[in-house]
């Protein structure tokens, strides 16, 4: 039984200070990196911080659902990245399929690339959420009492989704280039440097959803039920609430968030079958750092890992170090966090 909190509440002073240790240590690390490899302010903002926030937004969209699902149902959904990938493929398909200039376009087309983009986001999110609900009801529900089977099942689903995506003729195994809507295709000038508009869009999207889901958890009755269920789902059921329906809802919500992340990422990094696993790896690190089951933890973890990646990329480029060091940096951050606070930023005290 989990007793981990969906840390969304007013805390007393000592409770506020202790979760700050990890962000502060990481911040110190970033300062150290800047001392080793100095960057001008415009470079710092547009070359390190904003790209870091862009990554953080994508990581957050996957990690939020992963963490909520684990918190509520004790299910570690290894197929969460697959939902991200499926969302990306669906959005990409909408972007090309509805394009009248694309050779194999669908019978219905829309001339406006921005409208195609929005449709792609919506359809990707909704189908992703629906797929999540189907997976929960048909496959995970019979296995709630058998955690090992759940791991095998969700790991297996990774291969199933991978094979399915590759077998769709329009998708195949090769990667597809990102298609940006005309409104977000350009770049903006920030502190005298160009910065892609689409990256800003991803940051705004991630931030908006982080706030929206926080409000849902904090202000609505369903959010209250989720927070209570994370602590003790048996007692929630004993109050007369159909907890399984809440489980399905949260699974769909988490899947929808991941699919939305994928749909938005499709116009940023393109689509390829391995993208799910690639981003899921970071989402898992984010969730572990933030504290399994903690929503606020997922948000903070995403920020830390997103920034850690761009800061270490900067360090590696400036000092001419091998790029493998940059890739290792996130794992390094995770190791440091787990040494300092084994439960993660907002994890249960253990």
């Amino acid at each position: 039984m989990t007793t981990q909190p969906v840390t969304l509440r007013r805390r007393r002073l000592h409770e506020i200070v202790s979760p700050l240790t990890i962000p502060l240590v990481t911040l110190l690390l970033f300062v150290l990196i800047l001392l080793l490899a100095p960057a001008s302010l415009p470079k710092l903002v547009t070359g390190i911080i904003l790209p870091g926030l862009t990554l953080a937004a994508l990581y957050f969209l996957i990690a939020a659902g992963l963490s909520l699902i684990f918190g509520l149902m004790d299910v570690l959904n290894f197929a969460h990245g697959s939902l991200f990938m499926v969302g990306a493929y669906i959005a990409w398909s909408c972007n090309v399929g509805l394009d009248p200039l694309y050779p194999n376009h669908w019978p219905v087309t829309i001339a406006n690339s921005n409208a195609r983009f929005v449709i792609g986001l919506l359809v990707g999110t909704l189908l992703g959420a629906g797929l999540g609900a189907v997976v929960e009801v048909l496959l995970i529900r019979p296995l709630y009492k058998r955690p090992i089977y759940q791991v095998l099942l969700t790991l297996g689903l990774v291969f199933v989704f991978d094979a399915l995506v590759r077998s769709v003729p329009a998708w195949g195994s090769d990667s597809k280039a990102p298609i940006k809507p005309s409104l977000l295709a350009g770049s903006l000038e920030i502190l005298g440097r160009r910065f892609p508009t689409y990256s800003l869009f991803l940051i705004v999207l991630g931030l908006t959803l982080a706030v929206a889901v926080a409000l849902l958890l904090r202000r609505s009755r369903i959010g209250m039920t989720i927070r209570a269920g994370v602590q003790d789902s048996t007692m929630v059921e004993a109050l007369g609430i159909n907890v399984r329906r809440v489980f399905t809802g949260v699974f769909a919500l988490g899947a929808g968030l991941a699919a939305l992340g994928g749909a938005a990422a499709a116009s940023f990094i393109g689509v390829y079958p391995e993208m799910g696993l690639e981003y899921q790896l970071f989402a898992f690190i984010v969730v572990v750092i933030g504290g399994l089951g903690s929503y606020s933890g997922a948000a903070i973890g995403a920020l830390l890992i997103g920034l850690a990646r761009t800061f270490s990329d900067h360090l590696v480029l400036e000092l001419g170090l091998p790029t493998a060091i940059a890739s290792a940096s996130t794992v390094l951050v995770m190791a440091v966090v787990l040494l300092l606070k084994p439960g993660g930023v907002f994890g249960a005290k253990e």
């Binding site: 007793t3 909190p5 969906v6 840390t7 969304l8 509440r9 009755r221 209250m224 039920t225 927070r227 209570a228 602590q231 003790d232 048996t234 007692m235 929630v236 004993a238 109050l239 609430i241």
Partner: peptide, 20 residues
């Protein structure tokens, strides 16, 4: 049902516990 170990929701306020 009032269970042995009370099982109140620790992260919810008193009002939220009752509203739920």
């Amino acid at each position: 049902y009032v269970p042995e170990h009370r099982a109140i929701f620790r992260d919810l306020t008193v009002l939220e516990n009752l509203t739920l």
